Simulated assay, not measured.
Amino acid sequence: MEKSFLVIGTGEVGIAMLDSLYNYIATTQQQFTIGALVQSSSAGNGSTLQSRFIGLAIEAVDLVSESIENLASIFGKYDTVICCSGFSIGAGMQVKITKAVLEGGIRRYVPWQFGADYDKIGRGSAQPVFDEQLDVRDLLRAQNKTSWVIVSTGMITSFLFREEFGVINLSKKVIHALGDWQHSLTLTSCEDIGTVTVAILFHQPEVLDQVVFVSGDTVTFQEIADKMESLFETGFERVLWSRTYLEQKVNDDPDDVFNRYRLVFTHPGVTWPMNDTFNHRNNIPTTGIVQWANTHVAII
């Protein structure tokens, strides 16, 4: 079906994607079919979604247990599939979804690649799930029937403020730098991921079969500390976690997912200049770290 969209997953990014698609409809007065794939175990959430997004089609499916063939038949009803399911559904699932997309013969696919520059990071990094992202890219690049768009966003901004991650600890007023104080991170909020991805999908001429870089903000760890001190009008203890220290933490506890994320985010492939982004070139405003924190984080 021409100009129909299926959003897989209704977490933070999925909801932001639906918001942006519906905002586009409201702004342009165009009509498109929009669907959301929800886990069959939470199918009751479909009515809640439909009360928020009028006309939304609900596809209730268990991604883990459903066969690739059945998933392909569902995906094949849509022109564009946007995967917002994240890593939490389990190892191998992004490859399974991609195989179903290709089997379904859809026109255009946006895979769950809202993160680092996986090509630059390469295989065998501290975070094994990143290898699966490269498997997905290999599948897409090895065929020419389904077009694809990979949207690289860096770290989701809210993740930076998770105390388990450890970079910004507001309760203890500590900022940890990963690797080096001059190393930088590219950050993009969920809302901006939705906004910019939808802008990419409707851009003319069409953006197809390429990696597109976006950014809400690109900041060094020193800038992060300076900005937090200025925003909250208080001092933060500044502690460097060297790469050697982070490697040892992974060796000591390889099952700790945050140990792996801390180490992998010392890699150069997690950052790019704002000037090189799609949103900068197309004058799309995005939310910087201070603006995001001012809106989402309570005063400490």
Score class of each variant (00 low, 15 high):
Met1Cys: 05
Ser4Gln: 13
Phe5Met: 06
Leu6Thr: 04
Leu6Trp: 07
Glu12Cys: 02
Glu12Ile: 00
Glu12Val: 00
Ala16Arg: 00
Leu21Ser: 06
Leu21Gln: 08
Tyr22Asp: 07
Tyr24Leu: 04
Ile25Lys: 13
Thr27Ile: 03
Gln30Cys: 05
Gln30Leu: 06
Phe32Thr: 00
Thr33Gly: 13
Ala36Gln: 02
Gln39Asn: 15
Ser41Lys: 06
Ser42Tyr: 07
Ser42Trp: 02
Ser42Val: 00
Gly44Arg: 02
Gly46Ala: 04
Thr48Gln: 09
Phe53Gln: 05
Phe53His: 04
Phe53Trp: 04
Ile54Asp: 11
Ile58Ala: 13
Val61Cys: 15
Val64Asp: 15
Ile68Pro: 14
Ile68Tyr: 13
Glu69Ala: 08
Leu71Phe: 05
Ser73Leu: 10
Phe75Cys: 05
Phe75Leu: 08
Gly76His: 07
Asp79Ala: 09
Cys84Gln: 03
Cys84Ala: 10
Ser85Asn: 12
Ser85Gln: 08
Phe87His: 09
Ile89Glu: 09
Gly90Trp: 00
Gly90Glu: 04
Gly92Phe: 05
Lys96Ala: 02
Thr98Leu: 06
Val101Glu: 06
Ile106Met: 12
Arg107Tyr: 10
Ala116Arg: 07
Gly122Val: 02
Gly122Ala: 08
Arg123Glu: 13
Arg123Leu: 11
Arg123Thr: 03
Ala126Ile: 01
Gln127Arg: 01
Pro128Asp: 07
Glu132Gln: 14
Gln133Cys: 12
Gln133Glu: 11
Leu134Phe: 07
Leu134Asn: 07
Val136Tyr: 12
Arg137Trp: 00
Leu140Glu: 14
Lys145Met: 12
Ser152Cys: 14
Thr153Trp: 08
Ile156Pro: 12
Leu160Ala: 15
Leu160Asn: 15
Phe161Ala: 05
Glu163Tyr: 01
Gly166Pro: 08
Val167Met: 11
Asn169Phe: 04
Leu178Met: 09
Gly179Thr: 00
Thr188Met: 13
Cys190Thr: 10
Ile193Thr: 13
Ile193Gln: 14
Val198Ser: 10
Val198Gly: 10
Gln204Cys: 06
Asp209Pro: 07
Gln210Phe: 00
Val211Trp: 06
Val212Gly: 15
Val219Asp: 01
Met228Gln: 11
Glu229Asn: 05
Leu231Cys: 08
Thr234Trp: 08
Tyr245Ile: 03
Asp252Pro: 00
Asp252Leu: 01
Asp255Ile: 00
Asp256Pro: 03
Val257Ile: 10
Arg260His: 09
Arg262Tyr: 06
His267Arg: 02
His267Ile: 00
Pro273Asn: 12
Asp276Arg: 06
Thr277Ile: 02
Pro285His: 05
Thr287Ile: 12
Ile289Asp: 06
Trp292Glu: 03
Trp292Arg: 03
Thr295Met: 11
